[in-house]
Design a protein around this nucleic acid. Structure first.
Length: 276
DNA sequence: GCCCAGGAGATGT
DNA sequence: ACATCTCATGGG
């Protein structure tokens, strides 16, 4: 057992209920997944974050974004009272630093879909095509590798229930397996990475922003989904407009941490914790 | 049955 | 550049 830290983090919120990632499982109050090819079980005991894994501590701290001071976020956006309120509503929320490939696949599946079904589909993909890791608490499944999905037939993915997104998955997996520079996105300017991601099938503005925010550490990305569309104008006093313009205006208005704030607003809206 | 879900792509103007 | 349509699938 390894101690990860004592930060005020809500692991269930971040890993299971925040709709940033969809592949973690819970058993006996512990949360499990395969990360960087290694099985991970993580839980909290009296305010201490504990983990059972062969991964080094700093990999987990980075995944959970523990090095960032989230109490400063509410102050940064204090000029927008509703935004600051949303941040203070969820002191245990963190924006995860996931592998870009995992965010890419998960959010292609998220298009015109709901959270519970996204979770079921991601789980089915991992169980069907991901490497199995045996642990004391049971079997964990990794995300399927790009080369594996690239060789899938669209029809066998359709049989898992992914619907019309079957060819998006195969097409994107093929481009990644053929050398699409996923690992270079992190160091690119936002606009360049965004344009590159949009060339992948099944990736539009919203999915690209999710990959940049959750998978590339580009915290200025501001994904605009149906929930954010409903509340952004009211929170910032903007005139109603297209989702693309909402995202652009939010990035100008909010700067480099726009996406972090977006996660709090999204969760507040989706759970009904905040009106509008 | 209709409407919705962390939308994208194709088509038409 | 913008509006409209369709695309599977499961739950309310």
């Amino acid at each position: 057992m390894m101690e990860i830290g004592n930060e005020c983090v809500d692991l269930r919120l971040c890993l299971m209920d925040s709709a940033q990632c969809f592949h973690w499982v819970e058993r006996d109050g512990r949360f499990g997944a395969v990360l960087c090819g290694e099985a991970v079980w993580i839980w909290q005991e009296g305010g201490v974050i504990c983990a059972e894994t062969d991964l080094p501590k700093d990999v987990l701290r980075r995944y959970l974004d523990l090095e960032r001071d989230y109490s400063a976020l509410a102050e940064e956006y204090a000029r927008f009272p509703k935004a600051a309120q949303a941040v203070r509503l969820f002191p245990g929320m963190r924006v995860l630093n996931q592998p870009a490939w995992e965010a890419l696949i998960a959010f292609i599946l998220s298009a015109n879909n709901n959270v519970r079904r996204i979770r079921n589909l991601v789980t089915a993909l991992c169980r069907g095509y991901g490497e199995a890791k045996e642990t004391a608490l049971g079997t964990l499944y990794a995300f399927p590798k790009p080369e594996v999905l690239a060789r899938c037939g669209a029809d066998e993915l359709r049989a898992l229930g992914v619907g019309y997104r079957d060819r998006y998955l195969v097409g994107t997996a093929r481009m990644v397996a053929e050398g699409f520079p996923l690992d270079d996105l992190r160091g690119m300017p936002y606009e360049d990475g965004h344009a590159a991601l949009r060339t992948l099938p099944g990736v539009g503005d919203k999915v690209a922003d999710c990959v940049q925010l959750f998978g590339c550490g580009q915290t200025e990305a501001y994904p605009v989904d149906v929930w954010i569309e409903r509340m952004t104008s009211a929170v910032f006093g903007l005139a109603p407009c297209s989702r693309q313009k909402l995202g652009a205006q939010a990035r100008v208005l909010l700067g480099g941490h726009a996406g972090l704030l977006q996660q709090f607003l999204f969760h507040a809206a989706r759970t009904g914790a905040m009106e509008l």
